[in-house]
Amino acid sequence: MAFLEILNGAFVAAGYRVDLLVQVVGKLGHLPRRRGLVADQFYVGGIKVLHVVLLVGFSIGMVVSLQTGLELSRIGQQDQIGTLVALSMAREMGPFITSTILAAAVGSALAAELGTMAVSEELAALEVLSIDRVSYLVLPRVVALAILCPMLTILCDTVGIIGGGFVARSQLGVGLALYYDTVIDSLQTPSKLFSLPKDVYAGLFKSFVFGIVIAIISCSAGILARGGALGVGNATRSAVRDSIILVIILNYFMTWYFYQQ
């Protein structure tokens, strides 16, 4: 029975999230009126995670460069390290690292904030005041994260590539000029309109989706919070857990979609 209840709870939660997303899409027309709130959320969220994204992105770039670089140098191909670092940052590492950090730092804060509103009757107050909580609370947060996540991903990719470059020079003996040539080469397809390859677009599209997922899951966890401070704690925990799980699952399916033959 307990298992069925948990299963039922999971379906209810999933249904609520989908419903919330549909409502947000339906209220995109309110955006001009909500631009101030979007900007607030964007800055608050951005400031919270910027330094973490830079630090982690840089370190991941170094790790990727070192790990694959050592293998490449064994077969004498270390000159290609720039290509590998650039592509793995743009395709996988950048979007994934950025969204994990966003889920942990910003998603948890969103869930705690809305959860506190739920348990202190602030959401009820909005409802009695005939203020639409989707338009007033959820929409600005979803839009802010949908913009913030790809922008931070670009930063993460960039510092990762820089970090990889340091390692390439100090550990693998690949000159910086060569490194950056291979990076630029791999990130350009001259025939295309904006001369950026699919890898960059796919990565940024993933980030865009992840930003929305994190915001929707965190907002719905907060709104559904019940039972005082304990309830807010539970909402925060499940928001982070569920966002990261869903990011990983969706990441697989989007990768499969973009790179299937």
């Binding site: 506190t116 509103m117 202190s120 009757e121 602030e122 009820a124 107050a125 909005l126 009695v128």
Partner: peptide, 10 residues
């Protein structure tokens, strides 16, 4: 509606 705890938006 006056809420028991005020319910001000924090």
């Amino acid at each position: 509606y006056l809420f028991q705890e005020g319910a001000l938006i924090n």
